[in-house]
Design a protein around this nucleic acid. Structure first.
Lengths: 326, 326
DNA sequence: GTGAAAGCGCTAACAT
DNA sequence: ATGTTAGCGCTTTCAC
């Protein structure tokens, strides 16, 4: 590896001068600059960013902690963040937490040691103190870590309401809900939105709600049970798209025609929803925008700029597709 | 941030001693060790890995360059690699190249500057020299960068043969192929496998092959054209699952029943294939194993161990599903 | 406009 | 068994 010393020697200047032309800082004679640049090119010299980071205490790196990159919901978010961060000269360290607090803590501590400049996190588990103790700015997306942590997400409650209302408008009279994990707040919010619409109907009771754990197979079982035990169900609002697909599979196997016998709507708007037959209606999140906004806010904070709010709420779009047609 | 000096001072020892207990190296009295550890805990001290990296010239970081994380094929590979690398104390820097050589080069050069210990890459574009010039070990997966670069992948040629033969065995008599990009070798290999089976039939000619660019929509158009211009086609081998889905969508829209009128098989074995109706047959790759193997080989090389071969070929599994049933 | 030198936080000779 | 110190490659103050 060639170092700044090599360049300095060959250009017959001091390392300070080389550093100046490297960083475009301070005064340096035009001719000297040219000479130095020539040597830099000749030697194909690239500054060692580790050394630079040690001095400057900044690494141009941000961490991104996601539950599980194999879950099709997350890649779009990551991709968007990476695109923006890369433009800004940052690099992403990716970590899968598996929704496990301990892993999150380990990753956070590792990031602290590696001096990342900031971290993006999708988590429901970290405590307010953990976030406050962290030496670098943290920004949450998709889920709320703590009210004090800047967060980018959608209005899950309204989304739950809209989805449920849509089913009603399409003629459903008995609407079941397959909910997500109880420890995930956005699942609770979507559930509350559903409740808000159905609570006061004459048919509603607890038996219309099942736990699907945000998982395809669990939702499939849940839907099978729901439809078997209560064949009058003619609408299902699943709290995410994976579970909507599970419901679709269940209906198929039970020979319920979708959308004729039972209509299904999901939540998130992942690409899969266009792959199914019938295509799935869904409350679509602007995933790319969310990821990008999160990244850009984080960069702002890293650069020391104050941001004017804590919560950034993006609009949901009701995608009406075949699975909820009349 | 508390440093090794703070610990040393508080424990009334030198930084060398602290470093020794930190790294479990050299001699250190049991009592001193305890005292130091106590202070470390009290101060909640964590060594600065930037400083450590600067000295040791190793960062416990590896780069992973993938074409596009939003493509559902890649996350499983990344996840597997992350799992293994993390166990081994490594951290992953993720980069999306969009199949763009210049981006790949930029990322590689950035990784060089950041002193990553090694890189995993999914690419068809880098030249042998570029790889050889790199100061850190590089390992390819899924695609061959250069014969000299250790590579983990499947036998695409045989896979193409097997898929095509399967369609024949299921009764297809006119089998079309939707191929992947010409500059991607694995697409060519799969195509060659197909050719090997159909070349000598009395019906085959060029009109049975269409370009799908490994993309859903392009494949959908290609399949529409194929099926419209030649309705005698009763089998389609798509070079990846995304395109198989495109073909399925096309068939659906043209009112071809799958599998009755036309059978479809894909390649890769991504999760999506189980989401469709009918579920898609596919040549399934052991994605998790491939990712894990790639990661473990890279770690071996980083640790200075020689590996005994250049190419590691994993078996494909023919997943027979509804889309190719008789 | 340029150079000398200190120092970022750590590790590892080397000395004791 | 422990301490002193040089040095990893860079940036930046301070002199000149």
């Amino acid at each position: 590896m060639t170092t700044i010393r090599d360049v300095a020697k060959l250009a017959s200047v001091s390392v300070a001068t080389v550093s100046r032309v490297l960083n475009n800082s301070g005064y340096v004679n035009e001719l000297t600059r040219e000479r130095v640049n020539k040597v830099i090119n000749e030697l194909n010299y690239q500054p060692n960013s580790i050394a630079r980071s040690l001095y400057k205490k900044e690494t141009k790196t941000v961490g991104f902690i996601v539950p599980d990159i194999s879950n099709p919901f997350f890649p779009a978010l990551i991709r968007a963040a990476e695109d923006y961060l890369n433009e800004q000269g940052f690099t992403i360290i990716l970590c899968n937490s598996d929704e496990d607090v301990e892993k999150e803590e380990r990753y956070l501590s590792m990031m602290k040691q590696k001096y990342v400049d900031g971290v993006l996190i999708i988590s429901d588990y970290l405590t307010a103190e953990q976030v406050k103790e962290a030496p670098m700015p943290i920004l949450a997306l998709d889920r709320t870590v703590d009210d004090d942590v800047p967060t980018v997400l959608v209005d899950n409650y309204q989304g739950g309401r809209t989805a449920t209302k849509h089913l009603m408008e399409m003629g459903c009279e008995r609407i079941a809900h397959i909910r997500g994990p109880e420890h995930i707040e956005n699942a609770n919010d979507r559930y509350d939105g559903y409740l808000n619409i159905v609570r006061d109907t004459d048919w509603f009771d607890d038996s219309y709600v099942a736990q699907g754990g945000y998982q395809l197979n669990q939702a499939k079982e849940a839907a099978t049970k729901l439809l078997t035990e209560n064949p009058s169900i003619d609408g299902i609002f699943a709290s995410n798209d994976l579970m909507a697909l599970g419901a679709l599979k269940a209906a198929e196997r039970l020979n319920f025609n979708v959308p004729h016998d039972v209509k299904i709507i999901g939540f998130d708007g992942i690409e899969w929803t266009k792959a199914t037959t019938p295509e799935l209606s869904t409350m679509s999140q602007p995933l790319y925008e969310i990821g990008k906004k999160a990244a850009s806010l984080l960069v702002e904070i890293i650069q020391g700029n104050k941001i004017d709010q804590k919560k950034f709420i993006f609009p949901l779009t009701l995608e009406k597709r075949k699975s909820t047609e009349r």
